[in-house]
Design a protein around this nucleic acid. Sequence first.
DNA 1: CGGTGTTGTGGTACCGATAACACGTTTTTC
DNA 2: GAAAAACGTGTTATCGGTACCACAACACCG
Lengths: 345, 345
Amino acid sequence: MTTERSNATIKDVAKLAGVSPMTVSRVINGSIRVSPDTQRRVEVAISDLGYIPSRLARGLSARKTGTLAVIVPDVSNPFFTLIVRAAEEVARRSTYRVILCDTRADLSVERDVVEELIAHRVEGIAIAPVSDRSKPHLARLARFGVPFVLIDRTVDGVDADAVVGDSTGGARLLVEHLIGLGHKRIGLIVEGDEVSTARERRKGYEVALKAVDLSLDPTLVEVQAPDPDGGFLGMSRLLAGDEPPSAVFAVNNLVALGAIEAVRGAGLEVPDDVALVCFDDIELASRLYPFLTAMEQPAETFGTLGTQLLLERIDGRGPAHGHVVVLPGRLTIRRSCGARPVVAL
Amino acid sequence: MTTERSNATIKDVAKLAGVSPMTVSRVINGSIRVSPDTQRRVEVAISDLGYIPSRLARGLSARKTGTLAVIVPDVSNPFFTLIVRAAEEVARRSTYRVILCDTRADLSVERDVVEELIAHRVEGIAIAPVSDRSKPHLARLARFGVPFVLIDRTVDGVDADAVVGDSTGGARLLVEHLIGLGHKRIGLIVEGDEVSTARERRKGYEVALKAVDLSLDPTLVEVQAPDPDGGFLGMSRLLAGDEPPSAVFAVNNLVALGAIEAVRGAGLEVPDDVALVCFDDIELASRLYPFLTAMEQPAETFGTLGTQLLLERIDGRGPAHGHVVVLPGRLTIRRSCGARPVVAL
DNA sequence: CGGTGTTGTGGTACCGATAACACGTTTTTC
DNA sequence: GAAAAACGTGTTATCGGTACCACAACACCG
């Protein structure tokens, strides 16, 4: 193994192989118009020099980088991790590379990330936007002609391809399940309605209640950050009310976690004192302790389908207007709702 | 808001501002040698055109990209997520961007990722390598003069900066804890010893047993993949043995998860029938259900320190030989080991 | 046998930025 | 008050590739 420092360029390879840089370029890019003999010589030279073509130069010159990006608000959320994995897989099969970006649900980080990706001249972006306030960022992409696909969330006033879950329907099912268990006072912990999923889940909650003539008590709705802290706060406030709910619907898995902590913190238990349901599973946690009754969404499909739509857009195929795919979820009944689990532990 | 498609270059900006591209470049890069008036005119032009400089061109021309990379074997593992977050934070403060890469613990993916990052001309890499067999990949980096820092794991035969946990000491503490609880037959589920942490944790296990004259029974050691499936398999085999262990040390959090499932699958319970300890916590799961007795490692510090070492390397500072930092873990006693928890639930 | 393709290869310009140097002007310095 | 230094800006070459066109050599056609 040589220890020599290598930073060969296409010219070095060309010289060593006794051809022009253009011919080396042809070999790299798998052009057909190269004689077998030349091709072999060039390949040997590349290998001898340990040559790796610069993506910077390639991208600059060819005006395409072969790079996509996936932007999510939280890479550590298992729901988004699955999306990312699936997206990478699809992209890889189309010989695209993927840059993964985490906005931490922070609008200003999202703004920077989008700008950075434009600067990198990525060819397309799959994005789970922070909220409706992401609209300027998406407008920026549109202005630069960067195709994008929305994942998990739509953005008010933005017409684009999107792959989302059936939040309204899913929420309705969850709440109907609680109603079926006899609950009449059902609380909701949800994030602000500038996030499409929150908006729709809230709507599903309301539809389910109205359908059985249960009144909508505004004191039973807590608007909180979509994380464990928000869940904790929301549940704490609900429990402190005059007439606390007997069941609560948490807008997502992390909120549910915090809500459970709040229940326990109040010396109560889930589901005995408060039943709980939510959107999205926490896979690792459920393996250890199958507890959360949840509307599970097909995260991988979000990633797969989203990336496929994106690739179509890049190729100039696809309809003129945004193509929105809505995927149904699956209700998984476990302990937190208080129903007898279907499968014994 | 104009809907015009924008792809302005530095020349367009220069023309609009009535200066040369060089002057625009100076403004972009915050050079001091620009008159306030010119600066303002250029900034207005940039803003009017919605100009975003091409990183490709900048990188090619300036021969530096201002980009680092973090490579981990599993972004969804909370341990690595924390590392990544911390690394990004440090990099951002030094005006570096970060590319996040997930190898899925697959050597061939790691090879491709490394090659891709060299092609992107990243200026430095923090990597949690797959195993000792990652050595050629690291050699490649060295050959290209790309500084790198090892995170969480060292690689046999590679001299580099590294930030790792005290695996041997941590493992010893965990096993001593089990011994202190009266266990005499203690099993181990570990991955192959081409991974430094596995090697060292196994060593810690052996040291702890020897220290109290407990024999090393090879049938109590299961070598398995470092994921839930491996844990399940390992635990299943241990339980099926002639003289099953009364306690088991799982090499990491995910293995522990699978191990618990195996115990339950056999109609037994943790810790009543088998006590269990492991490395690394699962934060979300522990919030829902504080169960795992674990050696928690300061993941953020791995990321922070690692990136700092990397930045020093890039600046040409830092010692000639690899600087290895070993960080101690913290033993968190919960239920899975069978000890009475310090804090009531 | 000239005309028309096809094949394999090279030359040149250029992608969009910056480094390095040059140059006219103003300011400082003694 | 002239030389030296600082200032503000432009010119040119170049980073490492690829697009586009040119072109020689050979094949095939009627």
